[in-house]
Computed example of a mutant assay.
Amino acid sequence: MMRVLGRITSINVRKVLWALDELGESYEREDWGMPLRNPHEPEFLALNPNAQVPVVIEEDGPTLWESNAILIYLAQTRKALLPLEPHALGQSLQWLIWQATELNPPWMYAVHALARKTPGYDDQAKIAESIAGWTRRMAILEGELAQGRPFIAGESFSIADIALALSVHRWFITPFADKADLPSVAAYYDRMRAREAGARWMPDDTV
């Protein structure tokens, strides 16, 4: 039995939960992360000194943090959710890393301002800058998906699709005007939400 520490409003926690559901794994989840439970408590810091969710604790296994590292660990130990063919494997890991390093950072200000209504995120110039950077990255994803493959690394669903689909969900659910038309991304989003676990972890009321 795996313990997952983290709140479900975290996109990174939902990555792990989606993967576990795809694998048919049993797990217990505990609420951690503000505003539910402060991850700076000593109990949590002993597990992850960065005070970030998720953390996973596997019986007779490691304690891990960093969502993409957890995804790779699950795929490697369960022999699933990653392609075996080297080129497809490289593509999957490429897009998994791109999601974290290129796609995620630009949206932060816009999501806080427009979706979460976080106090202090009301600078219109910074909102516009955030949306512009986000849109440029989404256009890169649109170009890749327009090549017609059902999944980001080819014919097989992988952990990269989990990470990207959750990011795409955030794009569609964050309200702002003049959102770019991305038909291939929209079709991909529909395919990912057609999966049972995808529908569960990309609900309409969670950014």
Rank of each mutant, 00 (worst) to 15 (best):
M1F: 07
M2P: 14
R3V: 06
V4G: 09
T9P: 00
S10N: 12
S10I: 13
S10L: 11
I11E: 05
I11H: 10
V13C: 09
R14H: 09
K15H: 15
V16M: 05
L17F: 08
L17W: 10
W18H: 07
W18G: 04
W18I: 04
D21C: 09
D21H: 12
D21Y: 12
D21N: 13
G24L: 06
Y27E: 03
E28R: 10
D31C: 03
G33W: 09
P39F: 12
H40D: 09
E41F: 01
E41S: 01
P42T: 08
E43R: 10
L45Y: 09
A46P: 00
A46R: 06
N48G: 01
N48C: 01
A51N: 14
Q52E: 12
P54L: 11
P54C: 09
P54F: 14
V55F: 13
V55L: 08
E58F: 04
E59M: 07
P62S: 02
T63R: 05
L64R: 01
E66Y: 00
S67T: 02
S67Q: 03
N68Q: 06
A69Y: 05
I72C: 01
Y73D: 00
Y73N: 02
A80L: 01
P83G: 03
P83S: 04
E85W: 08
G90R: 06
W95P: 02
W95L: 01
L96V: 05
I97C: 10
I97E: 07
I97S: 11
I97P: 00
W98Y: 14
Q99F: 04
E102V: 03
E102Q: 14
N104F: 09
P106D: 08
P106I: 08
P106H: 09
H112T: 02
A113K: 08
A113L: 11
L114H: 07
T118R: 14
T118I: 15
D122E: 12
D123A: 04
Q124I: 04
K126P: 01
S130R: 08
W134V: 04
T135D: 10
R136A: 15
I140V: 15
L141Q: 08
E144P: 00
E144M: 05
A146R: 11
A146K: 12
G148P: 08
F151H: 15
F151C: 11
F151W: 15
F157R: 02
F157L: 13
I159D: 00
L164T: 11
L166S: 06
V168S: 05
H169N: 10
R170I: 07
R170D: 01
W171L: 11
W171G: 02
P175I: 13
P175N: 13
D178N: 12
K179N: 03
K179H: 04
L182Y: 07
P183W: 15
A186E: 14
A187D: 14
Y188Q: 06
R191A: 15
M192S: 02
R193S: 04
A199T: 04
R200Q: 11
M202A: 13
D204C: 01
D205E: 13
T206S: 09
T206W: 13
